[in-house]
Design a binder for these strands. Sequence first.
DNA 1: CAGAATCCCTGGGGATACTG
DNA 2: CAGTATCCCCAGGGATTCTG
Lengths: 128, 128
Amino acid sequence: MVTIFVKREGMTKKKSLLTEGCLQYIVGVKDVQDVMSGKWKYRIVAALYYTEKMRFMELKNHISGIAPKVLSSELKDLEMNHLVKRTVCDTKPITVEYELTELGKSLNGIIEAMGVWGIKYRKSVLKK
Amino acid sequence: MVTIFVKREGMTKKKSLLTEGCLQYIVGVKDVQDVMSGKWKYRIVAALYYTEKMRFMELKNHISGIAPKVLSSELKDLEMNHLVKRTVCDTKPITVEYELTELGKSLNGIIEAMGVWGIKYRKSVLKK
DNA sequence: CAGAATCCCTGGGGATACTG
DNA sequence: CAGTATCCCCAGGGATTCTG
């Protein structure tokens, strides 16, 4: 933890700061929170991670409870941030496939960390 | 069967936890999302992780932008789920110290994973 | 099938002021 | 200092219907 001085409202004040490393992490964490915002994105990414590739309806059926509007919107976000790739197949009635990009797949580390912690958390809370 | 506390539908509810077979992992992710819900909890936990112990105002000044009401509420959630320990010190004007429990500290793995990914993500997106 | 269009609603937060 | 108490607002989602 460090202290720096900031000028604000005409006077110089002390301000404590967390260390560089910590700050970087916090920015990174914030990015993840932004990119994975909302209620469904982790489940979408996890579903795609385990199935490689899915169509809109498959995805919708896989993620119980999600409304089409919401799924569509979440997928757009993910696509916009290069985590998901969308492919339109030129079939009779059109078909669209969604899959993770390499970047999207790399989220696995986070998801795994969360999964592992969650399991330990349950056990820990169980003891009380 | 255990219970944790989740904010959902506007009120804090008990949530039952059951041990399951293979989807534990996804369930774990959901638990983390529940327990770390909202806009500020990761930053609070990160701040406490790097400073060991802080008083309410210190914490508030460290986390720029957070309103006291919100900080208070977030801390209550964290305390309720055994991630943060609150200690009232019997000083002249009372003083309260917040620190992570062992369980809270164990979140470090997740935070680090997110931090690392976030940093890589920036670099990756920057190239495009 | 893959979404877009609508309508609606609530609850998470922000800002500010107050209290023991 | 360490929080409550109020008031307010809007964007994230839900449910449903429509379209190319």
